[in-house]
Nucleic acid binder design. Structure first.
Lengths: 198, 198
DNA sequence: CAAATATAAGTGAGCGTTCGTTTATTTAAA
DNA sequence: TTTAAATAAACGAACGCTCACTTATATTTG
């Protein structure tokens, strides 16, 4: 006298198709009934796994952000040499965006919605502890100019994200077909290190 | 036998409240009936000035982008010295975001919707001509390392946008209250110039 | 110089549709 | 048989948008 087990594949499809739909059509083009059709389930099935639309999207944000952070910190330690540590982080983010391009775009869309507060709250804990420590260590070793955290972050990471943006939208302001590769990343990282080293 | 003149204030209110609403609640929280109430007009009045919801939003994107570009190119010329030219651009963008913070956030929200294609098309024309020329001139004068346009852009502008982002959301990953000011901007610009100069 | 007229601005009510969500029922594993 | 998963159908609410109508203004008319 036991219960019928959940079909994990269905929940997986719901999550996958939801991200695809939001990336393709934006948050305003996203709907529960549409999602149900795309995922091949009944609308009511979605409500077995999620309280409501709000909670579904929040849940997606959190799980994607967790995956991104796990990627980002692979083979990384706060006491690495500055140039090595920054290179590892850049490589990890590039690897993540090549392996999960939809996730990257999904997070960028969410950044300007009220959902992002939950992501920020999570990222703050980890990034402030680990990356804050990395920054302070590098400063101590005289491998990094002492800077306010925001200035450091803006110079150290924003250029990479901009390159990824150009890549994702397939073009920049002048090139009609831009593709990010290892050589371009390495060149940009070189400039950033030049800026940040004493 | 003449006509009743349009009340320009009404159209102005429609546009203003639309931007406020989208910034506050996102594209999915935006609606024609809600907008009509906020602007103090009838829903039907909106359709005197705009074909439909799509055209209204497109029109907002274009006019905001035009205003932003006009700001951005004030007192700027492609044949300025590199450091001076870049400083003028940074100052202009900062001035714009202080003077029109809603516009800035509006554009950022729109960046990840299908409306942004129209903005990109417009920006491409101007930015590629004027800023492309600025970059080539600076290279010719040996004031800028020769770089692919995307790498240049990512290093030269992305850090400023990141600082503005931190400011707009009121906090970064570690600071619970971050405010961008001239001194921080100048410090960051210094790093960027260091990276880009030969 | 009113009063009448023509024109377009502007509106309230409500159309048909789509939305997020729920209910009544069936299906499948234990 | 029991339990929960899963669904098809349908709900009220909210949506974008339109229609029949009123209001305001510039001109023409007497």
């Amino acid at each position: 006298m036991e219960m019928r087990p959940r079909d994990e594949y269905k929940e997986q499809q719901i999550r996958q198709k939801a991200i695809e739909m939001i990336v393709a059509e934006g948050l305003d083009g996203f709907g529960i009934n549409k999602l149900a059709k795309a995922a091949g389930v009944s609308p009511a099935t979605i409500y077995i796994y999620h309280k409501d639309k709000e909670e579904l999207i929040s849940s997606l944000c959190v799980s994607v952000a967790e995956k991104m952070m796990a990627f980002s910190l692979q083979n990384f330690s706060p006491d690495m040499d500055f140039a090595d540590g920054l290179r590892v982080q850049w490589r990890n983010r590039l690897k993540y965006f090549i392996q999960c391009p939809l996730d990257m775009e999904f997070i960028e869309i969410m950044r300007y919605t009220h959902f992002y507060e939950k992501v920020t709250a999570m990222l703050t804990v980890n990034f402030s502890e680990i990356l804050g420590a990395f920054m302070r260590n590098a400063e101590g070793k005289k491998q990094l100019i002492p800077l306010p955290f925001e200035v450091y972050w803006a110079v150290a990471y924003a250029p990479l994200y901009q390159l990824i943006k150009f890549h994702n939208q397939g073009n920049s302001y002048v090139n009609s077909s831009f593709m990010l590769n290892d050589k371009l990343m390495e060149q940009t990282l070189g400039l950033v290190l030049k800026a940040l080293k004493p």
